[in-house]
């Protein structure tokens, strides 16, 4: 093996990985609309990338309704979304020994796609008032 360190085991938390290549969280915008729940396409995507003893990090998933920054990003705050993620997790685990952490994100301030009917909460929020030159 040319890369002894890359292909050697590594313990991450309680999990014993068999190699050190990980899938970084990648925004794919493929969730069902309007539920923003993962669907079979998402399960297929992650299962395709699974390797025994690997580490896949799920895409950044908004923790609240006002935390979206792009259309079609799966959320993780409704029962339907949780059920969709369960399908994804099961598909990955069925590939054998993969470890899949969820990535929790809140993109508030980028949250420009809150549907009008959900605007009751008011304007998009952010950590601070953005500077005028920001888009």
């Amino acid at each position: 093996m040319n890369y002894p360190s890359l292909f050697s085991p590594l313990k991450v938390g309680p999990y014993q990985l068999k190699h050190r290549l990980a899938l970084a969280p990648l925004t794919r915008m493929r969730a069902a609309k309007p539920s923003l729940a993962p669907r079979p396409l998402n399960a297929e995507y992650y299962a395709q990338r699974a390797t025994p003893g690997g580490l896949l990090i799920a895409e950044a998933s908004p923790v609240m309704e006002t935390g979206f920054g792009s259309p079609g990003v799966p959320g993780i705050y409704t029962e339907q979304q949780i059920a969709g993620w369960r399908e994804v997790v099961d598909a990955v685990h069925a590939r054998g020994g993969d470890h899949l952490p969820a990535a929790l994100a809140c993109r508030a301030r980028l949250a420009f796609l809150v549907p009008a009917r959900r605007r009751a909460a008011g304007r998009a929020i952010g950590g601070a008032d953005r500077r005028p030159e920001d888009r």
């Binding site: 950044a60 997790v89 952490p101 969820a102």
Partner: peptide, 10 residues
């Protein structure tokens, strides 16, 4: 609840 193995805070 969804069965993930952990969580990454983005």
């Amino acid at each position: 609840q969804a069965g993930f193995d952990g969580v990454e805070i983005h």
